[in-house]
């Protein structure tokens, strides 16, 4: 299955799209932020520069940001497809995209300190596989920048200092703390991708998966939808603003998922995504036909 289809080419195109074009609703959110900032303020100038940058990157098919991030990938595949081959093809696509300058050579051997030179390394790209009932493939990817990754945080509840208990009010308190700690360092205005529950690993993974959601969607769980909305308003009231220059646009969106947990643990994991909220999603049918979903 899929043996006759050049998946490497499609995967390379997926990487190109993610690195050089932002989803439309993200650009709209940045533009809306620009329009509420004070005329002539540092915040407005920063957002104007960002909007110009988005246009230039799209026009010249060049990376939006020089930190082209970690490619984090989720692939759904039908019964009988070799995940080993999919992994090899995707890794080769990352090499090609690096060669073509859609990506920076962004992998460093942690022990020797040397750049691997071709954009790939241990767990780079990082690929999750899930078998599904569909006949084709669905490939979803984010490019996760490092500056924003460094300001991500994982809290365990209860948190005495923040008076945060094991409930949604506790979640609200630690999320706002994470935004205050991050200031502008994660390239605000950012997107908060949150997971409540899980263990330390699954919680981070599931928080990142929230970045595949459209900014404009509504959480199907009413109390989480309400918390997402409230946190968006309150995070923007903190006044941190674009780049931490001060202003009204600190966060573009808040997305919350949850996993179950064991009794001893109650984790709240916040993945902070920079304004360059890069994702691309494609479905590939058995004939090699492509449907771009983002």
């Amino acid at each position: 299955m899929f043996e006759k289809i050049d998946l490497k080419e499609t995967f390379t195109e997926l990487v190109r799209r993610a690195s050089t074009e932002l989803p439309g609703e993200v650009v709209e959110a940045i533009r809306a932020g620009r329009n509420v900032e004070d005329e002539g303020s540092l915040a407005q100038k920063a957002l104007d520069t960002i909007l110009t940058n988005i246009e230039m990157a799209g026009d010249s098919s060049a990376p939006l940001c020089q930190d082209t991030g970690t490619p984090v990938v989720w692939i759904k595949y039908p019964v009988g497809v070799s995940t080993r081959r999919l992994e090899e093809d995707f890794t080769e696509a990352v090499r090609r995209a690096t060669e073509l300058k859609y990506l920076r050579p962004n992998a460093v051997d942690t022990l020797s300190g040397r750049n691997t030179g071709d954009g790939t390394g241990r767990a780079i790209p990082f690929i999750h596989f899930e078998e599904w009932d569909g006949p084709g493939l669905e490939v979803r990817m984010i490019l996760k920048g490092g500056g924003s990754e460094n300001v991500g945080a994982q809290y365990k509840l209860p948190d005495t200092g923040l008076e945060a208990g094991r409930d949604l009010e506790g979640v609200r308190r630690v999320v706002l703390d994470a935004v205050v700690q991050a200031q502008g360092k994660g390239c605000a205005p950012g997107v908060l991708a949150i997971c409540i529950g899980g263990d330390r690993v699954s919680s981070f993974e599931h928080s990142k998966e929230q970045l595949l959601r459209s900014l404009g969607d509504t959480n199907p769980v009413p109390e989480l939808a309400e918390l997402e909305e409230r946190l968006l308003v309150e995070a923007n009231e903190l006044g941190i603003g674009p780049m931490g220059f001060g202003g009204k646009t600190t966060v573009l969106g808040v997305k919350i998922g949850f996993l179950d947990r064991i009794p001893a643990c109650y984790f709240v994991t916040i993945t902070y995504m920079c304004w360059a909220d890069r994702r691309a999603i494609v479905q590939i049918d058995e004939e090699g036909g492509l449907t771009w979903l983002s």
Binding site: T49, N53, L64
Partner: peptide
């Protein structure tokens, strides 16, 4: 001096 984070194209030019 603060440059605009992520504005890789504007600054490269």
């Amino acid at each position: 001096l603060h440059a605009i984070g992520g504005a890789a194209q504007v600054l490269a030019r």
